[in-house]
Design a binder for these strands. Structure first.
Lengths: 153, 153
DNA sequence: AACATTAATTAGAATAATTCTTGATCTCAA
DNA sequence: TTGAGATCAAGAATTATTCTAATTAATGTT
């Protein structure tokens, strides 16, 4: 085994770079740390399968199921965002600033697009210079009037 | 076979309501007509499975594969839009006006949200009155600067 | 440190939506 | 009418993801 087996987790492991993600009630385990590090090491938007491959470099024994579990936990904890483009495999991104995503149909890369405010100032997008936008998809989630009224009763 | 086998297709079948979708190079077949009618009959946002169920009422012999094929054709032809919310089953909508989608996490319904212009005036959304927005997702597709420059050479 | 409790990990099976494959059928145009 | 190409249908195959059940690890005590 490439990793030491003695216990090495805590609810708030210190990162080399000082970043200390808050997992709330979840435990910060070795696996979750590895998955989170994979996401922050490179600022692309890997799929679960890609995260799995990169994670195995740091922790050869990690399983795909665990990678899925970790990604879900990190997403639920709010320190990672899940990004869906069409029905392709989900991609994951540790950028928590409000931003949109720009997907290149050719090289399949996903780029963050800075956004001042979520709802209002979406007009002030800073797209990668020289890019061509073919399609914009906006999806909102929440509660419709009927359900919202329902919930209040 | 439940359906008559004699020919009954053309490139531009007239609808009862006068709408005449343009399929471009694709043929307007009976099946495609049925699937399109299902989408325009009700203005909700059915999944392929739901379209299949409704289509069978009009044409009992139609197959799920055909419904998928028809939906893809209609989408490619540009007379239907495919709507994805997270990784749930795709939903389909015949509203071609620029609009965003509002998804109710509770009743799972999808609502169209009028949009003046795609890119610019996204701030002028007309949400269903009394709704609560929890999350907004924006995804764009096109070509990144590298690929765009590449394509021009 | 050892224990109990609870959470997390793992491997593999299961699922759901979608796509693919293949052969039959249909349509258009010559 | 006939051939080429498009479309349809049934079911197999694929892909991403989730679930299941058993094992292992972590945490909070004693």
């Amino acid at each position: 085994m490439a990793e030491p087996t003695h216990s090495n987790t805590s609810r708030s492991i210190e990162r080399k770079d000082g970043k200390m993600p808050d997992l709330g009630d979840f435990r910060m385990t070795k696996q979750r740390r590895v998955v989170y590090d994979v996401l922050t090491d490179e600022l692309d938007h890997p799929t679960a399968a890609e995260v799995f491959i990169r994670s195995k470099e740091k922790m050869p024994g990690i399983s795909l199921a665990t990678v899925y579990n970790c990604l879900e936990t990190l997403t639920t904890a709010g320190i990672v965002r899940q990004v869906n483009v069409d029905r392709d495999a989900s991609r994951f991104c540790p950028n928590l600033n409000p931003h949109a995503h720009f997907f290149c149909s050719q090289c399949q890369n996903v780029f963050d697009v800075n956004l001042r405010e979520a709802a209002d100032a979406i007009s002030a997008w800073r797209l990668p210079n020289g890019s061509r936008v073919d399609q914009i998809e906006v999806a909102m989630k929440g509660a419709c009037p009927a359900c919202e009224a329902n919930a209040k009763n």
